[in-house]
């Protein structure tokens, strides 16, 4: 086995050092947001009377969404800064190096961040437009 070249960044390197956590992080936030939204809505609709004001769940929904998107933005920032991820890859990453791996993970994480953020926004929209149980 050839010796691997020194990695350039300070990103965690191999799987057992947790280097791929960033990949699963944003979809997990999406999943958590999805679940929590359902819980909050179900509890709210069960406890609040039919004609309850619509503002409270609205603020919860917006707050939760903004918070989740903020965390995702932070993840995206890490993906760019530490992993050197970019949106568009023009040269295929074929290099079998730590640098190449990091770039690839950064790229995929970035795309997943965008996907998750869009999904969360789509999740919130119906609540804001309809606002009833």
């Amino acid at each position: 086995m050839p010796e691997l070249p020194e990695p350039p960044g300070d990103a965690p390197r191999v799987i057992d050092q947790g280097s791929i956590w960033i990949l699963v992080a944003s979809p997990s936030i999406w999943a958590a947001h999805f679940l929590i939204s359902y819980w909050v809505a179900a509890v709210y609709c069960a406890k609040a009377p039919n004609a309850a004001p619509l503002m409270e769940p609205r603020w919860i929904a917006i707050g939760l969404g903004v918070f989740c998107c903020a965390v995702i933005a932070w993840l995206a920032w890490i993906a760019v800064k530490r992993y050197g991820g970019v949106f568009l890859i023009f040269e295929e990453i074929t290099e079998s190096s730590e640098r190449g791996r990091d770039k690839f993970i950064g790229h995929v994480s970035l795309l997943l961040c965008v996907l998750s953020a869009v999904a969360i926004v789509f999740n919130i929209i119906p609540g804001l437009v309809l606002g009833e149980c």
């Binding site: 869009v118 926004v121 789509f122 929209i125 119906p126 437009v129 309809l130």
Partner: peptide
Amino acid sequence: VVGALLVWGLVILK
């Protein structure tokens, strides 16, 4: 496009 249609559809539903 899908986002815009979603909002539009929801407004109609409302």
